[in-house]
Design a protein around this nucleic acid. Structure first.
Lengths: 348, 348
DNA sequence: GTGAAAGCGCTAACAC
DNA sequence: GTGTTAGCGCTTTCAC
């Protein structure tokens, strides 16, 4: 294909040296406007494209930021990426997005590929399977790493999370306010911190109101509707079946709704449902699903901001301190839980 | 942060030259097993990570494949990316995914960023706004470019598409079979080929059955539910309102369903609805939505295969010929259109 | 205001 | 089987 044109070609064409051309591009103060013009014009004419591999090698930086997320098809993550994208691109970086598909090997492979690509920083959210964080810890010794949402704590790694505990408390409290008495919980990967925090928030409200608690009421699920449906079916066969469910993700809540529908149990009259994340599907299902909004785009933007700040600090001195930010979550009440306590058709 | 270790450091440590170390890594035939072992062990101990910037510069290749899609949050595109990812990573490349958000400037910026990053090939699907293809044509003079789904035709660019015409024909024919008589169409960006082909398919069936046709029956919409809803409302106020709709995307069909619901028009009894793409939402809405599956993952894999093949050809000779592949689409019949012709509660 | 020269980290002839 | 050398394309002192 077309021969690549380099600064040497441009230099030859307009009769200066490569070094002058380089300076012209970087807007060096001591280069004449005339040369600058000539260089720019020649570059355009010849179809010059700077080789970032060479620039990167020379400058010791790639201009790349790496992203590792479970999967881009969750609106939570695609929105977060949108937030990241905006900040990062105005700061002059490009994004390399990779997906772990919640698999540990994929995640490790992605991290290493990003490091070899010499990304200058990394923004990530843990794969569901992951319990060994050494790949991230290793990465953090070379470049700033910012974890968002699904994080672990390390002295070299920044974290941006939402208030999962508070979100869970608000969600479960809302179910209580609506008159539901026996509230079960569908959880996600148990080793993932936000899910653990949501369990804590759930338990907190139950204890506060001295509501029925049962180990069987907390079901760990893989993130798909089938698991939510199966778990709900198991719960309905429980000797003391619940009358409401708080799910740690919308897709699980959706699975639960499918199970309820199949059994002819009415939502919200007979059974309350609330999810978590405000995924697109939560507003599409019938009845519309109550959920907890995680401000995904802001969360992503925040993670990007933290990273970019650290990239700047990095360049000046070594006074690096990781940052931990927690942003609020917001309860969104829709139809799946909107029942007056008085109107409760309590099943016992 | 940690000092970067290079092959020079490894060489110094085990008392050989950098070139020997390089050869050890690339499994050069004429290097002794002992040296190889020593190099590998030292590399591990010292935390060596090859600098792909240097390798890339030296070899003239980055090991990167660029992707440009409208947005990763459509399940169509995220599934396609999954298909791409698999093939591309087994071929030893990494993916740089960028989003145009259907905006021309974003798209051009992404293409240029990818070229500067020296991606070895590019897989893309046009932004909705785009009518000027020169950025892609320019790119294709340097590296192989494969367009999928939303394509344009260029002698240097390969295309992988689905049979949009056939898919549209099947969808509209199905509505006809179900007894719907006045079928309108919600289209997407009119300059995007697949949408144009779906219009053709739609018209083809209408003409074949001598059904009512009207310019107002074809509405161009932006890809969001609000536009679908607004267009549906306009159609319902038409002097001759339709009794069914074929939408060029599921999200538009969903918007239409919202408008119908608001007016108390029953789907599918009073009004038939069919979408396109088999997005996740189509199976979630009530009633479940009939649609046309595009085999997104296979489509992505196919695009990746075409690209990788061309990368190989490229390395051998210059006998480059672009490839054009069309894969089948599949009609998926769900509740939003499943009505017996005889059961039609025709509204005149 | 511009040029000369060295070097970022790696690879690939070519020697020996 | 290993070393020597040159160079990928670019930036950056340091001269002048």
């Amino acid at each position: 294909m077309a021969k690549k044109v380099t600064i040497v070609d441009i230099a030859a064409k307009i009769g200066v040296t490569p070094s002058a051309v380089s300076k012209a591009f970087s807007d060096h103060p001591r280069i004449s406007p005339e040369t600058k013009q000539a260089v720019l014009r020649a570059a355009k004419e010849m179809g010059y494209r700077p080789n970032v591999l060479a620039t990167g090698l020379r400058k010791g930086k790639s201009g790349l930021i790496g992203v590792v997320v479970p999967a881009v098809h969750y609106s939570f993550f695609s929105n977060a990426i949108k937030g990241i994208e905006e900040l990062v691109s105005t700061a002059g970086f490009n994004l390399v997005i990779t997906q772990s598909h919640d698999n540990y090997e994929n995640e490790t492979r992605n991290i290493n590929a990003l490091l070899r690509a010499r990304v200058e920083g990394m923004i990530a959210s843990l794969a569901g399977e992951t319990t060994d964080y050494s790949a991230y810890r290793d990465a953090a010794r070379d470049i700033p790493v910012v974890l968002f949402d699904r994080t672990f704590t390390d002295e070299n790694i920044s974290e941006v999370t939402i208030d999962d505990f508070g979100g869970a408390v608000a969600a479960v409290q809302h179910l209580v306010d609506m008159g539901y008495k026996r509230i079960a919980h569908l959880s996600g990967y148990k080793n993932i911190l936000p899910f653990a925090k949501r369990i804590e928030g759930y338990k907190h409200v139950l204890m506060k109101h001295r509501l029925y608690m049962d180990d069987d009421y907390i079901c760990e699920c893989m993130p798909n509707r089938q698991e939510g449906q199966a778990a709900m079916e198991r719960l309905l066969s429980h000797r003391q079946p619940p009358d409401a469910i708080f799910a740690a993700s919308d897709v699980l809540a959706y699975g639960a709704m499918l199970a309820l529908q199949k059994r002819g149990i009415r939502v919200p009259q007979d059974f309350g449902v609330i999810g978590f994340s405000n995924e697109e599907l939560s507003s599409i299902v019938t009845p519309s699903m109550s959920t907890v909004d995680q401000h995904s785009e802001i969360l992503g933007a925040m993670a990007a901001k933290v990273l970019i700040d650290q990239l700047h600090i990095e360049n000046r001195d070594n006074a690096f301190r990781p940052v931990r930010k927690i942003i609020n979550s917001d309860l969104i009440i829709r139809d799946s839980s909107r029942r007056l306590a008085s109107a409760s058709t309590s099943k016992k």
